[in-house]
């Protein structure tokens, strides 16, 4: 689903690369934790998958396509294959829960009847049934993140990228979010989650890829956060 071939990314000439010769393959339906301290290259990894950045060298393949080969006007079609969740939720504060989720379908031209049926379904799936008309500031952090996940998942993309989705949440709420991501993963969706949260990683026992200073130092199936634990 996602393949990195000797990918390096250098932002400024002469500086240490943000990613250094990373090779990695993530299969369809996998759940992968991307761990490492701040500045280790996790975000760069995700940005390369979204083609917000281009690699300095090496090849990035997503959903069978070589991102170096797709023209910039086709990038939106790539992004429709990928749902994205962020630490800061990135909701539209003046739109209701329903509209925040619906926008993902509206902007890619899904017909109205489909939006009307799929959006409530997805809101229910993330556990926010009955809160469709609420505004984001009327929700708790965990609920807001559920809205963001609903938005990322409403088009049933084959890939979900989550950049520290529990970073702003307390441990109990985080567990709920992880259960939700796991459920999504069980539908066959590939989930890549960058995180600092050792408890979650240790609990879930999923594949763990660790980055240190842009280099991949560990790729472990059913792994834990690791000895080189660093506080978030």
């Amino acid at each position: 689903m996602i393949r990195f071939d000797n990918v390096s990314k250098v932002y400024a000439r002469g500086h240490r690369p943000a990613l250094d010769q990373v090779s990695l393959e993530i299969e369809r339906g996998e759940f992968v934790f991307l761990v490492g301290s701040s500045g280790s290259g996790k975000s760069t990894f995700l940005r390369l998958v979204l083609r917000e950045e281009r690699p300095t060298s090496g090849g990035v393949f997503v959903a069978g396509r070589n991102l170096a080969r797709i023209s910039s006007w086709k990038v939106p079609y790539l992004r429709r294959q990928i749902g994205t969740v962020f630490q800061d939720f990135r909701l539209l504060n003046n739109k209701t829960v329903f509209d925040n989720v619906a926008i993902a379908m509206q902007v890619i031209g899904k017909p109205r009847h489909q939006v009307m049926s799929t959006v409530p379904e997805t809101i229910e799936m993330v556990g926010l049934a009955g809160k469709e008309r609420r505004l984001p500031h009327e929700l708790s952090g965990g609920e807001q993140q559920r809205v963001a996940i609903a938005r990322a998942f409403v088009n049933r993309p084959p890939i979900i990228l989550a950049d520290e989705p529990t970073g702003n949440l307390d441990p109990t709420t985080s567990v709920g979010i992880m259960r939700l991501l796991e459920r999504i993963n069980r539908t066959g969706t590939t989930v890549v989650m960058a995180t600092h949260d050792d408890e979650i990683v240790d609990q879930m026992r999923k594949r763990v890829v660790e980055l240190v200073d842009g280099q991949m130092v560990r790729d472990q199936a059913r792994g834990v956060y690791g000895a080189r634990k660093e506080s978030a």
């Binding site: 979204l50 006007w73 939106p76 079609y77 790539l78 992004r79 429709r80 294959q81 990928i82 749902g83 994205t84 990135r90 539209l92 926008i103 993902a104 902007v107 890619i108 031209g109 938005r151 990322a152 088009n155």
Partner: peptide, 17 residues
């Protein structure tokens, strides 16, 4: 800007934005 960024993220085409 925020709205535009989100639209971009969920795969809205340039033209549509």
């Amino acid at each position: 800007r925020r709205e535009t960024e989100i639209m971009r993220l969920v795969g809205a085409s340039n033209f549509f934005i």
